[in-house]
Write a protein that binds this DNA or RNA. Structure first.
Length: 566
RNA sequence: UGCCGGGUCGUCUAAUGGUAGGACUACGCCCUUUGGAGGCGUCUGCAGAGGUUCGAAUCCUCUCCCGGCAGCCA
């Protein structure tokens, strides 16, 4: 091939998406893995997945898809005390929902325990691992500090035979938790603390969610993870930055074993402002009932985002736009919100809902008349068609759409002013009815029959168009409005205050008597709508009953007027 | 004062020795029967100092700042 052809071909190549794609493209060029690409997502089933995990799933699955490779789901279930079947099940559901297609490749690290044990025996025989009798406290002291080398355990130089015997007896259950560990024999003076004879096995007498009581010794992350990757013939083992210091150890184990050796690559995890991402803190919010579960719509978990009305597409776009790099980052929540607005604007059916109703009587409209008005289901997508909305003499509008003493620039209803009722007529406010406390409780208006929507006969122009529902036809629903869970940008960053003190007390507002148009009556849980001029809403899957629809607000519409008045 | 990794608009991310660009946000304007959507525009950035070079965000040196690591967690 001559140079011209090469450059012609190159001009069709897409620019690598990020530094990991660059590495993989280079590997393909040099045939490092015989052209194979095989990634994995290796969660520990000790909690629900959050948006950060979603980024990892999208990255790993996306790589497999883009390079015609494979993607595994693998549970890193090496710690029976923290792991549960509930978490396994939720993780499978979430990965699938996000579009991470692992086909039939769902694996469990615990299925490799026998192989891991045998390889540990091999290392003992090579003189590269030993059983240590030091207790946890002693081990910590012997490890040294960040600036001082550690010292060797007095048990470090046991004979191979003794180590073999002790290790076998560890497995048999002859010792108590913490009594003995198996350690790799590397270098107690290493500047990398992870290399100071790291622990490979600890004794844990606990029931494992898949293995039951078969094992009482469990491998540590460092020992187990490379083996899991190796067994599955992973090519690129992608993990987060905090494992960078562990890479020498990952490599050491695989080299000593002389087995298939994937490449570990680290990238910066995604953080989001106004929330927390650590599983420990999320668990605390759940356990101490600050939220109604892992899927409370205010949580940053995948199941919460789903319940709130996010689409997999929006989450994928968000993680794509957040980018993959090595510098620490805190992504702005507004980018997440942008991604769901962008998606739902194109796909969500429009509807009218009045959250805080104000009664309007149209005095010149016949008492018993009902009109069926035509409304567009989605102005962005005419294939979604139209629907009929009933209109009658009494309607409800939004309390905030009327002001007796409006500020400059207010386009809605004012005494003596006119406004269009969406898809209906232009009305004029003739009289304001108040209660004895001076609160506005009702408006008397007149309508102009010449201004019916869609007739094209109206010469009249008004600045504002507001939404409404017919008093006799609307149905009641519960609407839940969510705001950010925390009132500060980085709840983790404050060293003075516990993150629980920084919770936003107004993160949930429940409106129990909102009025919605009758076409929404039989909406199925999970269905998404745009309530015009309010935002996107989703029928809640947890609290909706046959008697009552409950809507979650996914995100507000952008509101340039509201911003101005703040 | 150990080791490892990072510093590009407010946020996120490109440019890999050759015009610092995009997205989000914010703010204007236009348009609009959703104050939505859409269109157009504006603001703001290479941590600092030297050096190499015709030319540096990019290469080198020093400084500063930030993050991770001392679980029998992952």
């Amino acid at each position: 091939m001559d140079e011209k052809n090469i450059s012609a071909e190159n001009s069709f190549e897409k620019k690598p998406k990020n530094f990991i794609y660059e590495i993989i493209e280079e590997d393909i060029k040099t045939n490092k893995w015989n052209g194979r690409v095989h990634t994995r997502f290796p969660p520990e089933p000790n909690g629900y997945l959050h948006i950060g995990h979603a980024a990892s799933i999208c990255l790993n699955y996306g790589i497999a898809r883009d390079f015609n490779g494979k993607f595994n789901l693998r549970f890193d279930d090496t710690n029976p005390e923290k792991e549960e079947v509930e978490y396994v099940e939720s993780i499978i559901e979430d990965v699938k929902w996000l579009g991470g297609d692992f086909e039939d490749r769902i694996f469990y690290a615990s299925d490799y325990f026998e192989q891991m044990y045998n390889w540990a025996v091999e290392l003992i025989k090579k003189g590269k691992a030993y059983v240590d009798d030091l207790n946890p406290d002693e081990i910590r002291k012997y490890r040294g500090t960040l600036t001082e080398p550690g010292k060797e355990s007095p048990y470090r130089n046991r004979s191979v035979e003794e180590n073999l015997d002790l290790f076998e007896r560890m497995r048999k259950g002859e010792f108590k938790n913490g009594q003995k560990v198996l350690r790799a024999k590397i270098d107690m003076a290493s500047p990398n603390i992870n290399m100071r004879d790291p622990i490979m096995y600890r004794i844990v007498h606990a029931e494992h969610h898949r293995q039951g009581n078969k094992w009482c010794i469990y491998p540590t992350y460092d020992w187990a993870h490379g083996i899991e990757d190796s067994i599955e013939k992973i090519t690129h083992s992608i993990c987060t930055l905090e494992f960078e210091n562990h890479r020498p150890l990952y490599d050491w184990f695989l080299n000593e074993l002389g087995v298939y050796h994937p490449q570990q690559i680290e990238f910066a995890r995604i953080n989001l402002n106004y929330t927390v991402m650590s599983k420990r803190k999320l668990l605390k919010l759940v356990q101490e009932k600050f939220v109604d579960g892992w899927d409370d719509p205010r949580m940053p978990t995948v199941s919460a985002l789903r319940r709130r009305g996010y689409t997999p597409e929006a989450i994928r776009n968000f993680t794509d736009n957040s980018g993959i790099a090595k510098r620490d980052k805190v992504s702005d929540i507004s980018l997440l919100e942008f991604s769901i607005r962008e998606d739902l604007n194109k796909s969500a059916q429009r509807a009218m809902a009045v959250l805080k109703p104000l009664k309007v009587v149209i005095t010149n409209y016949p008492e018993n008349k009902t009109e069926e008005l035509e409304a567009v289901n989605n102005p962005e997508d005419s294939s979604m068609g139209t629907r009929k909305i009933p209109f009658s003499r009494e309607v409800f509008i939004e309390q905030t759409d009327f002001m007796e003493n409006p500020p400059k620039g207010f386009h809605r209803l004012i005494p003596g002013g006119e406004v269009r009722l969406r898809y209906a007529y232009i009305i004029k406010c003739e009289e304001v009815i108040k209660n004895k406390d001076g609160e506005v409780i009702e408006l008397h208006c007149t309508f102009d029959p010449e201004t019916k929507s869609g007739t094209g006969t109206s010469q009249k122009k008004v600045k504002g168009t507001i939404h409404w529902v017919s008093a006799n036809h609307s149905i009641s629903a519960e609407v839940r409005l969510y705001d950010r869970l925390f009132s500060v940008e980085e709840p983790d960053a404050d060293k003075e205050k516990d993150f629980l003190e920084l919770l936003n007390p107004n993160s949930l507002e429940i409106i129990s008597n909102a009025l919605i148009e009758p076409s929404l009556k039989d909406s199925k849980p999970g269905t998404r709508f745009q309530f015009e001029r309010h935002g996107y809403f989703c029928v809640d899957t947890k609290f909706t009953t046959k008697e009552k629809l409950v809507f979650n607000r996914t995100v507000t519409l952008k509101d340039s007027w509201g911003n101005k008045t703040k």
